[in-house]
Design a protein around this nucleic acid. Structure first.
Length: 848
RNA sequence: GGGCGAGUGGCGGAAUUGGUAGACGCGUUGGUCUUAGGAACCAAUAGUGCAAGCUGUGAAGGUUCGAGUCCUUUCUCGCCUACCA
């Protein structure tokens, strides 16, 4: 008997699938569609285990849905713009496009070896003109709808590299590449008006029933809706400032007002631009702002101005105005009214600067003389010391009442404030989608005419030039439109823009006229199941939701409101970390086990320190290369292992032993397959095991179907093992050929989403040529006619009786009386109460 | 500081949602076969006890005939987020 040769089998089926085009999808209104999408990869060079896990999960689902008769679309593409290409190209002196395309072809081959059911005809790459020209058109459309605008905004500026850095590229206040101290610089940038949809994006979350709650909560917090009031404070002092606006959620504590605090970037700061002390203070603020620790400790510092702010509800009260480090310019109005008694931050600040702390809310049940002492009180209660507001219930009643009064007296307005800010999409980078805009000599903006799209990225640019390489490319930059001279916008779009609409492009990946074809998105959208890492919980998913809403804005053809109906966030793949005696990271291949300690390979004196299991990363060298693993064990074995060890939403530990076990299991399964094959050939008409085989198969259909529906993919693998164990036993028995054949076919079908090559090979080996469909559960067979009844006495399990299904209480009692257990536990003691759960258990309550 | 989630054998994890706790796998132990085993197969494997049994799902209470599952309090860990007015 041959061993299972995964190499030939997997290659054979991968070729077959590709040639026959089984995974090709097209609109077919006679069938229900299922759009399965995994987050497309960045072509960094090679696939990693995270990809293997992500795409295996999606593949199991796609194959399962196909077998169920759905018209499945399962596409794949490349998130191909971005900085790594630009950096790699600079380091190796080559073209980012070349580098990217080479990576794409490598990774595509690797993905194919996993045996994924992907419709490669729909492949897209965001860095190709075919893709980004449509993105430019969308940009212009959004511009026309008023959803795109330009404004000055602060950015992280690297003065050495002359470029803008993303927040995550600023490490301890320094540029990640140059090491230069990052400056805050105001730059003109393009923005998408995502905040216009704040409320819609928030409300939409309620409809996303198949999203993890965790992600919805994160988005909700990110959008950050708060209800409150804007209050205009009159000011007095030696500056030409008459009033300052604040946003507050607690206007009801206005009688506890004791100072007003401004952000150092507040417009009033312009009057202090020559003040040396203020400059010093501002520097101090930016220092504390950078480290997370400083924020956690949260030392509050302030700079006192000569201004006084007037309490609008009590004009005789005038309080000092400070600049303070804890006030953010981009939230509310960059100004806060301080009420130390009921806000911990304000409390800390007041303590430090010796400001009044006046209690205006007491907890229910306290005396009116209640006073805040060691910390602010922000809980519910009753208003005190607040004149006409006294006795109101805080917070709900008091806030509404106060806002009413402020509005009536024209001192303030009810206001809903969102934390969500508009999306700055300009990047001073080469390797991205050019923004299709231009400027005349006066700096006036015009969109590039649609007929001139796409604005192509120029080739042969000098990536080593300071700043944006596009800026240096004068022959590209200077253009003429309708005989008039213009200069192109040289910024490119944030790569998140590319991934905000790629799910639409997959529906019509070849459509040349427009980003999508209406009838195709009408059929395929929304994505039924989206699968990816939780690290995209906010940005990518929020931007995609925004893009859908923006395209649907003033466009009645756009029928769906949300791009992703279902979302599944898979966990990471982890591995132990290793360090040698010099504290250098070692990869798993660089170590070996001698006795029971690890040493560096070939260096028995260099003991290895085993660190905690962490997400695989190149920097910690705790990576396992999927290519090697597939090479040694085959795709099905890898799939089996990656699914088996943990629920897909949780992190999984890579284990060599587990991997080997999966490999060995397939070998065992192949042996079993051959025994089954022999048995079927013999054409016997046994009866012994038929019934139990049918029952088992039917129960397995039920279990595996339910586990697929619930994403319990690790349990499916356990079910496959169970099935092996069962058949391995029953195969000894006398079975009828036809029964064995029919049931085995069903079982192989159940296996095929997880181990597709193996299952296909076995099915073919037995000439199961008819169309393979997901087996149907026989409800009658599901119910065993013998039940294990749990017999409890006073709630304790005392026995299990195998009796017939649907037995009533009295009959079961009679059986119990006949049992020796009755003698032992019951004797003649009176039974006080009987709890009987049909087909499950009986609990007898007696006096002990 | 705020939010979310999780604590079950030596390990990863199951448990039809309130009804036999520990499925399945790894590891370990014993055995069979073998020149050999880091192969294959068989068996055992929560703790304790010779056994009947008793005890067991982070801890303490509670509801219930019955709690890993529900409620209250508490501890620990993980993730996200952060001076959001």
């Amino acid at each position: 008997m041959d061993r299972y040769n995964f190499k030939t089998v997997e290659e054979k089926w991968q070729e077959k699938w590709l040639e026959s085009g089984v995974f090709r999808s097209k609109v077919d209104h006679s069938k229900k569609k299922f759009y399965c999408l995994e987050m497309f990869p960045y072509p960094s060079g090679k696939i990693h285990m995270g990809h293997v896990r992500n795409y295996t999960i999606g593949d199991v689902l796609s194959r399962y849905k196909s077998l169920q008769g759905f018209n499945v679309m399962h596409p794949m593409g490349w998130d191909a713009f971005g900085m790594p290409a630009e950096n790699a190209a600079r380091e190796n002196d080559l073209d980012p496009k070349e580098w990217t395309n080479k990576n794409i072809s490598t990774m595509k081959e690797q993905l194919k070896k996993l045996g994924l059911s992907i419709d490669w005809d729909r492949e897209i790459s965001t860095c190709s003109e075919d893709y980004y020209k449509h993105q430019q058109l969308f940009f212009l459309e959004l511009y026309q709808k008023g959803l795109v605008y330009r404004k000055e905004n602060y950015v992280n500026w690297d003065p050495v590299d002359q470029t803008v850095l993303a927040n995550e590229q600023v490490i301890d206040g320094k540029g990640w590449r140059s090491g230069a101290i990052v400056e805050r610089k105001k730059l003109n940038q393009w923005f998408f008006n995502i905040s216009k949809f704040s409320q819609e994006l928030l409300d939409g979350l309620d409809d996303l029933k198949q999203w993890p709650n965790k992600v919805k909560v994160m988005q909700k917090n990110w959008i950050g809706k708060s209800f409150g009031c804007e209050i205009t404070f009159k000011t007095e002092g030696n500056l030409p400032v008459k009033e300052i606006k604040c946003f507050t959620t607690r206007p009801d504590t206005l009688f506890g007002f004791s100072f007003l605090a401004l952000s150092v970037d507040h417009e009033i700061s312009k009057y202090f631009s020559d003040d040396e002390d203020f400059k010093e203070f501002k520097k101090e603020c930016s220092k504390t702002g950078t480290t997370e620790e400083a924020i956690a400790i949260g030392e509050k510092i302030g700079f006192k101005t000569n201004l006084k702010a007037v309490n609008p509800l009590n004009p005789s009260q005038k309080v000092p105005v400070f600049f303070a480090n804890f006030v953010l310019m981009d939230y509310g109005f960059g100004a806060v009214f301080g009420c130390p008694a009921h806000d911990q931050r304000d409390f800390d600040f007041a303590k430090k600067y010796g400001l009044d702390i006046k209690t205006v809310v007491k907890p229910e049940g306290e005396e009116d003389t209640f006073e805040v002492k060691d910390e602010a009180y922000s809980g519910p209660g009753i208003l005190i010391n607040s004149e006409f507001l006294n006795k109101l219930k805080a917070p709900d009643e008091s806030i509404i009442k106060t806002i009413d009064i402020l509005e009536e007296r024209k001192l303030g307005n009810k206001k809903i404030n969102f934390r969500l800010k508009d999306w700055g999409v300009s990047r001073q980078r080469y390797w991205g989608c050019p923004i299709p805009m231009a400027y005349d000599e006066n700096g006036n903006v015009i969109p590039i005419p649609k007929k001139d799209l796409p604005v192509k990225l120029p080739e042969n640019v000098d990536l080593n030039s300071k700043g944006n390489p596009l800026d240096a490319k004068t022959e590209w930059k200077n253009i003429t439109i309708n005989g008039k001279k213009y200069v192109r916008e040289t910024d490119t779009l944030d790569t998140f823009v590319c991934s905000s609409w790629y799910y639409l492009r997959f529906c019509s990946s070849k459509n040349a006229e427009y980003g999508y074809k209406q009838e195709e998105i009408d059929y395929w959208m929304p994505v039924d199941q989206y699968i990816g890492g939780v690290e995209h919980a906010i940005l990518h998913l929020l931007y995609s939701r925004f893009f859908t809403k923006a395209l649907g804005y003033k466009n009645s053809n756009f029928k769906f409101r949300e791009p992703f109906e279902g979302l599944f966030t898979q966990g990471m793949v982890c591995h132990e970390t290793y360090k040698d005696q010099n504290n250098l990271w070692l990869s798993p291949e660089e170590i070996e086990l001698v006795g029971n300690t690890f040493h560096k390979k070939g260096d028995p004196n260099n003991k290895v320190k085993v660190g905690p299991s962490e997400s695989m990363s190149k920097s910690k060298k705790n990576v396992i290369d999927p290519e090697n693993i597939i090479q040694s064990y085959g795709a099905d074995a890898v799939r089996l292992f990656i699914l088996s060890d943990s629920p897909p939403e949780k992190d999984v530990q890579w284990s060599d032993q587990g991997m080997i076990a999966s490999y060995k299991f397939l070998q065992k399964l192949w042996m079993l397959h051959n025994r089954i094959k022999e048995k079927i050939k013999i054409q016997n008409n046994g009866i012994e095991g038929n019934e139990s085989l049918e029952k088992f198969t039917n129960q397995m259909i039920n279990k595996i179907t339910n586990n697929l529906e619930g994403f319990n993919y690790n349990v499916i693998i356990a079910n496959i093992y169970e099935t092996y164990n069962f058949i391995n036993k029953i195969i000894e028995k006398d079975l009828d050929s036809k029964t064995l054949k029919d049931n085995y076919k069903k079982i192989l079908t159940l296996f095929s989403p997880a181990i597709p090559h193996f299952s296909a090979e076995c099915l073919e080996d037995l000439n199961f040529e008819e169309k393979i469909e997901w087996p149907i559960i026989d409800k009658d067979l599901l119910e065993d006619d013998k039940i294990d009844y749990v017999i409890q006495i006073n709630g304790k399990k005392r026995a299990i009786l195998k009796e017939s299904r649907d037995m009533d209480q009295d009959s079961l009692m009679r059986k119990i009386k006949l049992n020796k257990l009755s003698e032992k536990y019951l004797k003649d003691k009176p039974i006080n109460k009987i709890i009987f759960v049909k087909n499950r258990l009986i609990n007898l309550l007696i006096n002990e």
